[in-house]
Computed example of a mutant assay.
Amino acid sequence: MNVWKNSVRATHLFSVSEVNKIKEYVPQTIKSVKYLVVAKTDNIVGFMGT
């Protein structure tokens, strides 16, 4: 969630309340992604999917 949140905050002009509303749907949405690629070192640093 931190990677998603930091990415959204850096690339979109959403308010904090808008980000908080959207993030409720992120776990469910990620589970529905057919192909999910995760980049990580010691921590997850990015992801993409289709």
Rank of each mutant, 00 (worst) to 15 (best):
I22P: 03
R9I: 14
K23Y: 02
M48C: 10
V26T: 09
G49K: 11
V45E: 12
V38I: 15
I44H: 08
V26P: 05
T50P: 08
I30T: 07
Y35N: 14
V8D: 03
Y25S: 07
I22G: 04
A10E: 14
L13M: 13
T11I: 03
S7Q: 02
F47Y: 15
K34E: 07
T11W: 03
V19N: 02
K5E: 13
E18A: 15
Y35D: 13
T41E: 05
V37N: 07
F14E: 05
V3S: 01
V37T: 14
F47M: 14
S15N: 10
I30E: 10
V16D: 07
N20E: 15
E24W: 11
Y25H: 08
N43R: 09
T11Q: 14
G49Q: 08
N43V: 02
S7V: 00
A39S: 06
E24G: 13
I44K: 00
T11V: 04
L36S: 07
N6H: 11
W4S: 04
S7R: 02
S7N: 10
K5M: 03
M48W: 08
K5T: 10
F47Q: 01
V38S: 03
T29H: 11
N2L: 13
N2G: 10
I44L: 08
V19F: 14
S17F: 12
T11L: 06
V26N: 00
F47P: 03
K34I: 04
L13N: 13
